[in-house]
Simulated scan of single mutants.
Amino acid sequence: MSWQNALACWIVRRRLRPETAKPEISVERARAYTSKRVWTPKVPRGWRLTPRYEPGDAPLRGEWLEADPPQQTTILYLHGGGYYFCSPRSHRTIVFALATRARARVFSLDYRLAPEHRFPAALDDAVAAYRQLRADGVPAQSLVVAGDSAGGGLALATLLALRDAGDALPACGLLFSPWTDLASTGASIRTNDGRDPMFFGASLGRAARLYLGDADATNPYASPLYGRFDGLPPLLIQVGDTEVLLDDSTRIAEKARAAGVAVDFGIWPKVPHGFQLCAPFMPEANRALEHAARFIQRTTAPSPVHRLPETSSV
Rank of each mutant, 00 (worst) to 15 (best):
D216F: 07
L210T: 05
L109Q: 04
Y77L: 01
Y84F: 15
V305R: 14
V244S: 04
S223W: 06
G194W: 12
T50M: 11
W10L: 15
P170R: 00
S177K: 05
V127E: 02
A301E: 05
I25Y: 07
S303Q: 14
A30V: 03
A285N: 12
S223V: 02
H79M: 05
P269H: 10
A208I: 05
G186N: 07
E24V: 13
E63A: 00
T93P: 06
V106S: 01
G213W: 11
C9S: 14
A121C: 11
I94E: 14
D264G: 01
W39M: 09
D214Y: 02
A8Y: 11
L78V: 01
A128Y: 03
D247C: 09
P269C: 06
E19S: 11
P139F: 04
D136H: 12
T180R: 02
L289H: 08
M1T: 13
L113G: 09
S90V: 00
V261P: 03
H273A: 11
A161E: 09
L225H: 07
V95S: 07
I252N: 06
W64Q: 04
F119E: 01
N219V: 03
T93E: 12
A30L: 12
M198R: 10
R294E: 15
A121G: 10
A293Y: 05
L246R: 13
A99N: 03
C9L: 10
A222W: 06
R251I: 06
P272M: 13
E19V: 00
H291S: 13
R206C: 02
V239E: 11
R37K: 14
A183S: 15
G80S: 05
P178L: 08
N219Y: 04
G186Y: 08
L246E: 09
F96K: 00
R37A: 15
A30Y: 13
N286R: 14
A293C: 08
G166Y: 10
V138F: 03
A146N: 00
E63N: 03
P197V: 10
Q4C: 08
F275W: 15
V244F: 07
L225D: 07
E310H: 10
I11N: 04
L235A: 07
R29P: 00
Y53K: 04
A293V: 06
P224Q: 06
P233V: 03
Y130Q: 06
T191C: 06
A215L: 05
P139K: 07
A288H: 10
M282D: 15
A222F: 04
S177M: 05
I75V: 15
P41N: 12
D148G: 13
G166F: 08
G227Q: 07
E28K: 13
R48H: 13
T40S: 11
I11Y: 13
E116R: 13
A140Q: 05
I237Y: 06
R251S: 09
T93L: 09
P220W: 09
E284L: 08
L159S: 02
E116H: 11
